[in-house]
Amino acid sequence: MEQTTLGSHLQIKKTAKRYGDKQVLQEVELEGKPGEFIAIVGRSGCGKSTLLRLVAGLEKASEGGIHIDGEEIRFIHPDTRVLFQDARLLPWKSVLENVRVGVKDGDIRKAEKALEQVGLSSRASEWPGVLSGGQRQRVALARALAGNPKLLLLDEPLGALDALTRIEMQQLIEQLWTEQRFTALLVTHDVAEAVQLADRVILIEQGKIAFDVKITLSRPREHNSDFAYFEKLILDRILIKEKAKSPSGNIGKNDNYTI
């Protein structure tokens, strides 16, 4: 991957998404500078994954639109890649061939190089089925990065992994992002993960951006008191509504509380 790859300039302009009568997102306004790492947090069903799918071009906005480098996207932008929560490797292709899916000109050496970056060269000829969950997600990451994306969208990519693998993956993602300087948009329900990786953390609540905080910690980030400060700041903000609601008898509604 060339050092020169520059991130996309992402603009989400007054974007709304409805499914029938259900308003999932409203008036979302967000700008991502080239090379910026933005994390979107929020409770289950707040619309954060929908926002990511809109940016990916997998869904159409009901109002407003997504602009990448100044141009409104109609379908999937050729320089945008998505890392899904489930690795979604093709069972009929070997590990290396799966990575090659992401190489624009199909050059096998680029696939080999991408696989090397995630440390899985030795498993190149195996079937995805024999890999562990963390390894599969690394292959998916290699596949996403093999196309030199300018914008990488990460849809809770570490949600299904165990705690140790998750830390390893976070380090890997941060390292590759530092090297390649693509713009990154990470959707997660894990506030610590957001603080660990992102330049900015955005909270979405009931389809709206409720909170936008810059994480001013230097990298690589240590779990020290500054880190805890940001983590608490965001968590407290998420929990405010919770506390306000509970006495009024809405407790039953909030039992799927996952943060």
Partner: peptide, 27 residues
């Protein structure tokens, strides 16, 4: 559909999408 989305995201359309994604998935 999730696998087809992988194809879309990586720029596969038309015949290439059928050859690399639909056909093996249908086989």
């Amino acid at each position: 559909r999730k696998l087809i989305e992988v194809g879309w995201v990586h720029g596969y359309r038309g015949f290439r999408l059928i050859w690399h994604f639909f056909l093996p998935a249908t086989l």
